[in-house]
């Protein structure tokens, strides 16, 4: 039991390590030495120590949104299971609460962007909300497919039953991992959807929404964006870690997969450019497409009469 909380605590302090990792990979690929992996931590500490400049146009929404954002990311983390150990909070339908908690913070971040009255932030908010309509729908298709496959309706029990590796499940896992990987890119606003390094171009989404934030609030937002990426990556790792291993090995594998995911993100950022904004929805629609294919396979698979060992209701 203790182990679970220790690992969750490690995850809570880890997000900036992963962001630093992406930057390091990009630097090495470009032949630079790059900033240290821990640089985002130094930035965070520096931001926390600073005061703030707040726009006179804004209302209370602008000031409460970052706190709600970080609170919901951390609460969402409580719902994500670890292999063998389960999650801190688990109940039937927890993935619905997971998705709606993230939507809650999205709602307030969009309002905060509109609160500044800046047209740049309006652009970002408008795009963010458009993409979230696709991502949320696809996420529910993914979870629905997994529920159909395992007959379970909570994160922990779904992942606990995904152990079997027949030809079909491997195919399904590949499809769902790709879908969830796109979700990581959207939630973390990374290339090819969004470029976190510039924020004054008209193609920006997330970065432009937080233009007016500074100091503690900005630190909160940066942290929760990084944490959201880790959270969705943890879902991918859960799909991939086989449960016939022993606990320590599976946990090491879990961490390894997380590191791998972020290195792949770094590689993608080094290799390809951001998509044209009109192509971004099409790219995110891949998520819907892959998850629907996965659902179709599962439905066909169940039809053929092969049932998983889930005990149903």
């Amino acid at each position: 039991m203790m182990l679970k909380y220790i690992i969750i605590a490690l995850v809570i302090i880890s997000p900036f390590f992963f962001t630093g990792l992406i930057n390091k990979v990009k630097a090495i690929w470009a032949g630079r030495k790059g900033s240290p992996v821990l640089q985002p931590y130094f930035d965070f500490v520096r931001l926390i120590q600073k005061g703030e400049v707040i726009s006179k146009t804004t209302s209370f929404i602008f000031q409460i949104s970052p706190s709600i954002n970080i609170a919901s990311s951390l609460f969402a983390l409580m719902l994500i299971p670890l292999p063998f150990l389960g999650s801190v909070i688990s109940f039937k339908g927890d993935f619905i609460l997971f998705s709606y908690t993230l939507a809650f913070s999205k709602f307030l971040m969009i309002l905060a962007a509109l609160d500044t009255g800046s047209s740049f932030e309006g652009i970002g908010a408008s795009r963010e909300v458009t993409y979230s309509t696709i991502v949320e729908t696809a996420f529910f298709i993914i979870m629905g497919s997994l529920a159909l496959l395992t007959n379970q309706i909570s994160f922990s029990s779904i992942f606990a039953l995904l152990n079997m590796s027949t030809g079909y499940t491997i195919l399904i896992k590949i499809l769902l991992v790709i879908s969830l990987f796109i979700m990581v890119l959207v939630e973390g606003s990374r290339i090819p959807i969004d470029d976190p390094n510039t924020h004054l171009e008209l193609t920006m989404i997330h970065e432009v929404m937080i233009l007016d934030y500074s100091g503690t609030d900005l630190a909160f937002i940066l942290y929760s964006t990084a944490l959201k990426m880790v959270i969705v990556s943890m879902l991918i790792a859960n799909l991939l870690v086989p449960l016939y291993l022993t606990v320590p090995i599976s946990l090491i594998l879990f961490a390894f997969i997380l590191i791998l995911i972020f290195m792949i993100i770094g590689l993608i950022e080094s290799l390809i450019a951001r998509l044209r904004i009109s192509h971004v929805p099409q790219f995110i629609f891949f998520m819907t497409a892959f998850s629907l294919i996965a659902f179709a396979i599962i439905a066909f698979f169940l039809r053929a009469g092969v049932q998983f060992s889930g005990k149903g209701l």
């Binding site: 600073k50 005061g51 703030e52 726009s55 006179k56 804004t58 800046s118 007016d212």
Partner: peptide
């Protein structure tokens, strides 16, 4: 800390 109120960054 010092919290300043200024116009939206334009």
């Amino acid at each position: 800390k010092r919290v300043e109120y200024f116009k939206t960054w334009d």
